[in-house]
Nucleic acid binder design. Sequence first.
DNA 1: AGCGTGACTGATAATCATTGTCAATAAGGA
DNA 2: TCCTTATTGACAATGATTATCAGTCACGCT
Lengths: 133, 133
Amino acid sequence: MTATRMTRQRREILDALDTRDFRSAQSWHEHLRSEGSTVGLATVYRALTALADAGEVDSVVSESGETLYRRCEAGEEHHHHLRCRVCGRAVEIDVPSFESYAAAIATEHGYAEISHTIELTGVCPACAARDRG
Amino acid sequence: MTATRMTRQRREILDALDTRDFRSAQSWHEHLRSEGSTVGLATVYRALTALADAGEVDSVVSESGETLYRRCEAGEEHHHHLRCRVCGRAVEIDVPSFESYAAAIATEHGYAEISHTIELTGVCPACAARDRG
DNA sequence: AGCGTGACTGATAATCATTGTCAATAAGGA
DNA sequence: TCCTTATTGACAATGATTATCAGTCACGCT
């Protein structure tokens, strides 16, 4: 009968996540601190992994092995991103017919419990301009 | 004028890599040791990252953030995998028309220097059978 | 074949992200 | 308000990867 409690920290984290950028747990933590919050790093990690498990945030593993988080659109079941390698800004993209394609390939090879990852990364217009600046 | 030198260690690593499985650097190191090699862990890491940079091995980042390596087919430019989450066994798959699709999406959003990742993971027939056994 | 130089190696320390620990705190139902 | 216990936060611990650095050896040159 133990529900999850809505604490000040969780509220803060949920609020902070209300953006369009992918950031690491550490980065979200810094961000929260800079806004005056006093949340601990471990708490941020715990909250983010819990939210990711619950499907409330998207998480991707970057090329360097860090896990990046971002709040995702409510109700969306499964989707993919075009993410900026520099600032983390991401847009959701549509990959038509990939689900069925993946399922077909999987059965063809006898693999079960299939899941897939599609990530496009690049440099967004703003960061490209900053580079040249 | 400093070319890369072909040392005993590198030969051993190249030889060991001649399989179809994705394994972490640590796992390859263990494997080499169990075969009687005396290579150091750091050397395995260095060789694998160098080979990955040179495009001679495939590398993917697993869900847990580990980097996994596997020798890739000579001459293949870019490809994707259906990989077993349990044993690492992988088959190369073909994702028709994805390259051009990725490029289109990228320009549509103004992103530059696009790269993409597509990974299918599942449980291979052998591991599924072992689970049930 | 013998030399010399600098790339390579391996043991180990250092780093970085993430998770575990545990006493103190505070949600939220009674 | 009171009690139970989920949650927190400071810090230690872990696990993967990278940096250090003195010793080694590949290999072009003579």
